[in-house]
Design a protein around this nucleic acid. Structure first.
Lengths: 338, 338
DNA sequence: TAAATTACTGGAAACGATTTCTAAGTCTAA
DNA sequence: TTAGACTTAGAAATCGTTTCCAGTAATTTA
């Protein structure tokens, strides 16, 4: 078993025609007589023939495959992006190869090499690294178009889906200020990546508008992930004169912050005001009315699919901006207890 | 650009040898002289040659690709399984093509056809359908080994990763009984699939051991998903003489149940006892001390990777059993207020 | 020294499709 | 009746590898 793969030869033999004729019938668009078409189609149906995608790819030079690389598939946000992109690309006849970089630069490099060997038609990636010579080299060496998630990229054959984090963060911050908060802490990832810079920009704008001087000691931009946020939250709220509000960036960070607050017995919405950046599935049910800044991951997936298909069709690189919206709930309504 | 793909011919030309020699050096295992090896390796390095995976696959008849099909990548449990399997398979030189069936039987069929065309070396799948003639046909027609998640499969070239749901549910039920609950409601998915049958088995065993007669009206095995669980929860707790405890099966179902309880103003752990089957990420932080029956999704991923690699290596099909453990927290400790 | 291994290398045939090129066949028009 | 235009079908090249098969040179054995 398994040995009996049916090839175009078998179909040709059965129909009593040349293999080139079979190919012509199947691809449709050339002049084929009705009789020929009927003969071939009968043979195809009888044998249950399906063209070998591998051989097609080799000949045509296109694999109809998109590489999808993320730092953490476990992150619900990204898994939704992946799902949505997969669905969208599937409609266009593309499959996706999913691969994880686990936030590791070396793995990321290896993955690009893998994509190259596999002759991927395009890549959608949420990179570990920011725009850098290394990224530029890798991408241009890849020989296939790239769509980056939440990265600003300059030049190159690359498009990007970026989120307007600033907008949502600004609204959230403004709301906290409206509730008389001035000592607002902010935790997010590394300062040198787009997403952090963009978030802090929204924060600074809102503070600037209200003419509140920012206390730099309350801004903690170090690493993404739960542990860092946990430590920083503990630190922020353990000292004397602690902040009265906290904005935490990213799902991991929010988790860490919430864990720390729980241990400190500070209840969001009561003892302090809290805003999470990004939501996760079942957000409204499973958490205690947390306010958030939301971005639509399905939209991100759709846009990234659209952009990569455009690049494959040789259109010029472009950017898609996905908006963010502030969703006030109870957790941001704690009063300042100054 | 892009046109300048470097092939084995270029390497051979540069090194001044035959392409077969280049292939031999690269694959290593045949007799090659030191001089030849040096020449070829120099040429490879100089040109930056990387073998074309496509051509290799065509020639060798193996694609080093595993199809991973699930009903919903968004389900955090499955996304962790996928991640873990991808990581494990990656070590063995395999990539995964991720594909979603969205719980739809027709899509599932198409996906299998796609896998076949792409000459996938193996498939790991969480099927919509249960063991049935259709499944048997599809799988045997696929011509590649299959590992099923949480399905009992008989015969065929298929292995399975199954979870011992019964064990965890039994412990959970026993704990509820110990706390004097007798009217225990149970919500899960379709009765004809393994996972539901297995869960209810654990429930029945615990009830049997305690010689409590099961009130069938409290057992709701209809569909997977949030909506069904929501409706059933509302129904169960709206009548007079409602149950005092609830076990809900699956992440979606638990969400629906919790949403309904929230609307009914019944607090788990206070007004009723509640146990969720399956956890989701950040379970302990983000929810209010819910008791659960836990299974390790990473282990499921690892096992499925192991099983598919075994099948590819022509070993006999087998089953891996992943245990479940009851994790009592506050939500199961509500007293009966009979 | 001749014969028989052994070690290595090059050429060519797969793998399974698409596509270009060429030849044969059909049909119309002079 | 035959030249020319137009279809249609088949042969062969191609994509980039691996692998089988010979063949040559070097080494060992009788």
């Amino acid at each position: 078993m398994g040995k009996n793969r049916i090839t175009i030869h078998d179909v040709a033999a059965k129909a009593g025609v040349a293999i080139s004729s079979v190919s012509r019938v199947l691809s449709g668009h050339l002049d084929v007589s009705e009789k020929m078409r009927a003969k071939v189609e009968a043979a195809v149906a009888e044998l249950g023939y399906e063209p070998d995608h591998l051989a097609q790819s080799l000949r045509k030079g296109a694999t109809n495959t998109i590489g999808f690389m993320i730092r953490d598939i476990t992150n619900p946000l990204f898994s939704i992006v992946a799902q949505s992109a997969e669905h969208e690309l599937g409609k266009a006849g593309y499959s996706i190869i999913l691969i994880n970089s686990r936030g590791d630069l070396d793995t990321e490099k290896e993955n690009f090499a893998l994509f190259k060997r596999r002759r991927i038609d395009g890549v959608i990636a949420s990179l570990v690294s920011e725009d850098s010579p290394y990224v530029r080299n890798t991408i241009s060496d890849l020989g296939a178009p790239v769509v980056l998630l939440d990265r600003e990229v300059t030049g190159l054959n690359a498009s990007a889906v970026v989120c307007d984090h600033a907008q949502g963060v600004k609204s959230a911050t403004a709301d906290l200020i409206r509730n008389k908060h001035t000592k607002i802490a902010f935790i997010s990832g590394r300062k040198d990546v787009f997403i952090s810079r963009n978030r802090i920009k929204g924060f600074e704008e809102a503070m600037g508008d209200a003419r509140i001087k920012i206390d730099e000691s309350l801004i903690r931009l170090g690493k993404f992930g739960e542990d860092y946020a946990y430590e920083q939250t503990k630190d922020l709220f353990s000292g004397k004169n602690p902040p009265t509000a906290l904005i935490s960036g990213g799902i991991g960070a929010s988790t860490g912050a919430l864990r720390a607050l729980k241990e400190l017995k500070l209840k969001p919405g009561k003892d302090i005001a809290f805003v999470a950046l990004d939501e996760w599935p079942m957000f409204d049910v499973l958490t205690a009315d947390l306010s958030s800044v939301y971005r639509d991951p399905e939209e991100m997936g759709r846009q990234s699919a659209r952009l990569i298909l455009d690049l494959i069709a040789d259109k010029a690189p472009s950017q898609a901006v996905v908006p963010t919206t502030y969703r006030p709930r109870l957790s941001s309504q704690a009063s300042t207890h100054a």
